[in-house]
């Protein structure tokens, strides 16, 4: 198996996607209705994040976000829960 096959399309953490699409990509000024100024995830309230992850798990079950496996969401939810317990 090539290395590429081994790595390609591995599941990406939701937080990684958020960090990138909210912060990177080309930003166009003017004429834009709204541009979300880089939301810094590091400073986001983790509790808010957890509750919204829970919402997403729910919607994944409702097939709303069918491609996000609930197993993956559960894992992330656990990780976030651990993080808040510690803080």
């Amino acid at each position: 198996m090539s290395h590429r096959e081994n790595f390609v399309n591995r599941e990406i953490a939701l937080i990684d996607i958020l960090d990138t699409v909210l912060d990177k990509g080309v930003a166009i000024k003017g004429d834009i209705v709204i541009s979300i100024a880089g939301i810094d995830l590091v400073y986001l309230d983790l509790k808010v994040l957890i509750s919204s992850v829970e919402t997403l798990v729910q919607s994944a079950q409702d097939d709303l976000v069918s491609s996000l496996s609930s197993e993956n969401m559960d894992r992330e939810k656990e990780a976030l829960a651990r993080a808040t317990e510690r803080s």
């Binding site: 709204i34 808010v48 997403l56």
Partner: peptide, 25 residues
């Protein structure tokens, strides 16, 4: 997706997560 609506929605993390994921997809 109007300006005023987005100002509210972008504060709702569940909306942001769902739509940002979709954007990425």
């Amino acid at each position: 997706f109007g300006e005023e609506v987005l100002e509210v929605k972008t504060n709702q993390m569940d909306w942001v997560q769902e739509k940002a994921y979709l954007h990425h997809e």
